[in-house]
Design a protein around this nucleic acid. Structure first.
Lengths: 121, 121, 121, 121
DNA sequence: GTGGTCTAGACCACA
DNA sequence: GTGGTCTAGACCACC
């Protein structure tokens, strides 16, 4: 994995994990990799992973059991809310960019529909 | 204007100008700022703007008249094609990100429609 | 090597390299001199060589491998096409000059044949 | 007319006049423009034209009649020899360039014939 | 080591 | 004034 220089690495890893949670790649209750293991895989400092898990816990997305590890929250409502929030950010940015190149709201709905249809053919 | 470190500055300026062309902020035949003037405004080296204009010319989006300046192409077909290409790239990326967090094609169309409606209220 | 003032240096160096490619002095896949090394040999600025290689790459005659160097294309078809194009330009110019001093097409073929025969004796 | 910086201007004008003589645009016995008139047309110093005519006279291609002007030689043999010399220089250079990009003598005759044929179609 | 980008500042031809 | 080219020298990412 390659990291972007402009965003703190721990934030980028948070986003990575969030994606996996909301997409269902990892489910409520699943155990995350240990700090040590994960830091080895990503070739980052263990402190960075520590910080990542800590922030995710502050957001209520994971919880830790001392001596057992870090686990994804089992509160499906929280996961659903996260998914909506992330989708909202992506869509908002998408609409912004489309308007920046001169499309209006009606155009956008239409062109997305067309694109999806074309993609499915 | 602030530049992102991950992309060459001349590419970012190209994108800036492309946005202005396809959105209609600058029209076919309009004169761009001179190399020196633009470089002063953006606080970059004149060579960087020179490179920007050169690449845009290579893409057929602008043309230069010696001793006169650099102008947006008058070929509306080219501009239209650019607009479609840019929109395509944005949409493609959008769909990719949405799928990454677990939405399928049908979800995406629906959620965009909802978002646009909500926005207009 | 000495450069003509009427043509940009990077174009002259491009032509130099093209000649070496089509004549087989350097072959498909061969590594070109590094930007720095070549600039030292020709006593020009490294940026000028950089520009040269960039334009050659744009024409599909060379490709670059990051951190490795710049190499002649391995597509023999491209090289063949280049050779034909260059020959065409030289011949066209030759015919033009001959006509300018009063030779017609038939004369030209004849005089070239004679010249070549004479040369081989 | 535009002059190349690398060759003395009077030589370039000599070549111009030689071309016109051998191509028959001006014939044996024809009067050349006066130094003053010609220098005005070409926007060069009259001394340059003076030098041009003087060198052409040294080569036996023109002669001057005091108070009358400068005239092309009436010796057709001289003109013919000049034409052959000029053709020889052009062909020699042509063959050199073709060999530089990897063609041999046989190739050259063949490709010229083809080119001329193609041109006449 | 490699190519790629950028800055700083110069000179040129053209209009 | 305009764009186009060139030099000098810096820093970067990649290998």
């Amino acid at each position: 994995m390659e990291f972007n220089d402009n965003l703190p690495i721990y934030i980028q890893i948070m986003n990575l994990i969030k994606s996996e949670i909301v997409s269902g790649e990892i489910c409520g209750g699943d155990k995350l990799l240990s700090v040590r293991e994960f830091s080895k895989q990503l070739k980052v400092n263990p402190n960075t992973i520590q910080r990542t898990y800590q922030e995710l816990e502050r957001e209520g997305l994971v919880f830790t059991r001392r001596g057992r590890g870090t686990f994804v929250t089992e509160d499906l409502e929280t996961i659903k809310r996260l998914k909506n929030d992330m989708a909202g950010a992506i869509i908002e940015n998408f609409i912004l960019e489309m308007k920046k190149i001169g499309f209006n709201s009606k155009d956008i709905v239409k062109i997305v529909s067309e694109w999806i249809e074309k993609e499915e053919r």
